[in-house]
């Protein structure tokens, strides 16, 4: 049977190529890399830490305003987008896409995948 890590990596592979997704990672809420499908040249550990801080800060900011917990954080730039969303209480899912990615499709796939991650990690 595949190890948990292999199963998580398998889940990330499903995302590859969907609506211009270029890279993806599963990160613990506190900023540690759990699994990634990212090119070797990226400092994946630092990317993981930044993403967790980003989502954590966004969640704190909105809940301070009484607006509840946000569903996701989307960062848009000329070179691409970064989208981070919760995947259960322990982890979050983040993807990087090409600039013209079909956001609707990406979000739909992300919500399916984050549900799977939630089931795997509890």
């Amino acid at each position: 049977m595949a190890s948990l890590r292999e199963r998580l990596e398998g889940v990330l592979k499903e995302l590859k190529g969907v609506g211009d997704i270029e890279a993806s990672a599963i990160v613990s809420r506190d900023g540690l890399l759990i699994a990634a499908d990212i090119s070797q040249s990226v400092n994946a550990e630092a990317f993981a830490a930044m993403t967790a801080t980003m989502l954590g800060a966004a969640e704190t900011a909105t809940s301070e305003l009484g607006k509840g917990i946000p569903d996701r954080v989307i960062v848009e730039g000329k070179e691409g987008k970064i989208i981070a969303t919760g995947a259960g209480p322990k982890a979050l899912l983040v993807v990087m896409t090409a600039p013209k990615a079909n956001l609707g499709l990406v979000l739909l796939e992300m919500s399916k995948v984050s549900e799977k991650i939630r089931e795997l990690l509890g």
Binding site: D30, G31, L32, A49, T53, A57
Partner: peptide, 22 residues
Amino acid sequence: IDIFGTPGQERFDPILRVLGGE
């Protein structure tokens, strides 16, 4: 070793909570 440095000012303490785990 992966090192995580936190902010120092109190207004950023929620981040301390985010980063402190594990």
